[in-house]
Design a protein around this nucleic acid. Structure first.
Lengths: 200, 200, 200, 200
DNA sequence: AATGAATGAGACTTCATTCAT
DNA sequence: GATGAATGAAGTCTCATTCAT
């Protein structure tokens, strides 16, 4: 029934009726964004990644800019609830620190979020629409943190995390968890003076 | 009838015997990088910006990647000494804080450095050569800070600055200097509890 | 999550049971033809102009060529009776000249006819089907004129009008009505030597 | 020395150094314009017609619009002197009429000019740059005619010719030269009443 | 009957790079 | 050493048309 596979062995995909193809394209765009950055966002790359014909991408998105914008929006939405969920069971300052240390010394899934976050920040630098998106994301992140630290410290903590994550992404030698823990602990509770042991 | 005048509007000015043309091209590349980001780095854009014929760029640089790498190297070198110079007259913690607050709430010239820094960071994520460059830059920055704070606090402070600068770049409402000052002051000297006035 | 909303901004208004939608599409095609010329005749443009879903255009017309042909046919039909009506009250040569001068120095509605006429002429140059249509139109126009001037002069007059209308369309400085009147008057009645007042 | 011909038998053309390629491209564009009209002006068509790689067209012309504009400009320039030359030997009214009749009942080479002229007129309708070009062309044509008829009659004659040429292009039955001659003769000299025999 | 979805071709354009001068 | 010319790949986007519902 399906047309025969072409000679070169590539699988055919007679996928006429395909709901949520749009969402799949956005996810593919995020994948490309993680691997190649904003330069990688081309119709061809995204289409190939989503295993979808080229024309399908242009059908669902009026322009590449819009595709990128919607992909970032999707990321912020997903990442937002994911981020909030991290703190669901947190009761004490020590637990908070644990969570944040894990955030910095990320698992592969954290790596993805981190890279996307920075890509968004940099893209936002030159795109007002994305700037609004990034601003909203920053605000909501700080609100989550503020539940534990108060508004001012949340902003400070957020900036610190941002910087540490960037550094962690770039360092080859895995930055010692202990150093990270100390830095976070001091910021979360300024009375902390010693290293990580002083939890009182 | 006149010679073709290539279709793009690149200016055509004879400029034989032009020493440090190579440097001018690199500076132009940095300009492009600030304005358009990595996507903007094309032979044509850089040539136009440097007011140099297209062939001149390909003549001096074997490939675009190399041009970008050398441009970033030039930036790190320039910015490195510039950064160190900022702290030349610093004697007290209060003076240190002043300098750092200025660093975050940057003048236009600071804006340039900030953007280039983030472009470098993000590009380094996917280019090992640039990663080495970025690592070296981070290390030397932290060494400068460490003269005032010690090694561990320097890393922490550096991360905080990085995050605050990124936030400052993105926020439309000019983030209040006072908040920045407080955040930095607390990180520089954890005993700080109040606002900026408590210097002692 | 919402259904895709195709990327182009075509409006989406439910309009079931819409008699003479076909005619509305043809009129929209003529509008597009006036504004953008033959290049503008695409399913999308016409659909947007007619405020009709894209599929509706392909449903009513087997191909774009057929759509264009039918649009031109509609124009010729409409314009034909309109043209004839212009001469309904004409009794004297002077009245004839008046009508023709008005024809050249057209109101906006005349502008539309003029542009469509030339579009048809040029398209007919390469499409035999349209050539027949254009020939029929020319013949019937000349028949109308011949009622006042005789067959031979009608052809001459028609050619003159065609040329003057084209020139009028292109000239920025509104060509003086007096010059037009003189030219027409001389062609309608070769004994005319002076300006418009000499009717004798 | 040259790379071997590809399997499909198409001739290879290793034409690195090729002066006046730009002019050849423009001529090819005019050829395309004659055969297919403005819609045919695509990089591919023109490149194929000029037997030149696709990139060559984009190299020499910043945009298709510019290519089209320059092609039309070339046409006007060439056609201008050609047109003037037609009247070089003309001394009497009768000779003038002869030349003009030939102009309308054109040889194939006249066909080309006629088509290009109308394409230009129609394109000028929507492009201010082309409008200026077309206006200049019209003016210079009328100046040539005015040497024989005076300014006012030249405009009238020009319009008549324009209309007759268009009709001649479209009619299948070759419009009788006699009718054309009569029409022109009457316009050139309004005292003419009879057919072509009355020359004086 | 009517229409949203889908797709492959081809449009315009930019570009890195090579080459001949 | 330096540069205009050249070219093929690939990028973005538009489109006619087909299809499933």
């Amino acid at each position: 029934m399906a047309p025969p596979d072409p000679a070169d062995g590539t699988a055919r995909r007679p996928r006429r009726h395909d709901p949520d193809r749009k969402a799949r394209i956005l996810d593919a765009a995020l994948d490309v964004l993680v691997e190649q950055g904003t330069v990688g966002i081309t119709h061809r790359h995204v289409a190939a990644r989503a295993d979808v014909p080229l024309g399908s991408v242009t059908y669902h998105f009026a322009s590449l800019a819009e595709l990128q914008a919607q992909a970032f929006a999707r990321f912020v939405e997903q990442r937002g609830s994911e981020f909030a969920a991290l703190f669901d069971g947190v009761r004490t300052r020590a637990e908070l620190v644990d969570v944040l240390v894990d955030l910095v010394h990320g698992s592969p899934s954290r790596h993805r979020s981190a890279v996307l976050g920075f890509e968004l920040h940099l893209a936002a630098l030159r795109d007002p629409g994305l700037r609004a998106l990034a601003a909203g994301w920053t605000r909501s992140s700080q609100e989550v943190l503020a539940r534990f630290t108060g508004q001012d410290d949340a902003a400070r903590l957020d900036a610190l995390l941002e910087g540490m994550i960037m550094h962690a992404l770039l360092t080859t030698e895995p930055r010692s968890r202990e150093a990270t823990r100390t830095a976070i602990a001091r910021t979360v509770d300024p009375r902390e003076q010693g290293g990580s042991r002083a939890t009182r």
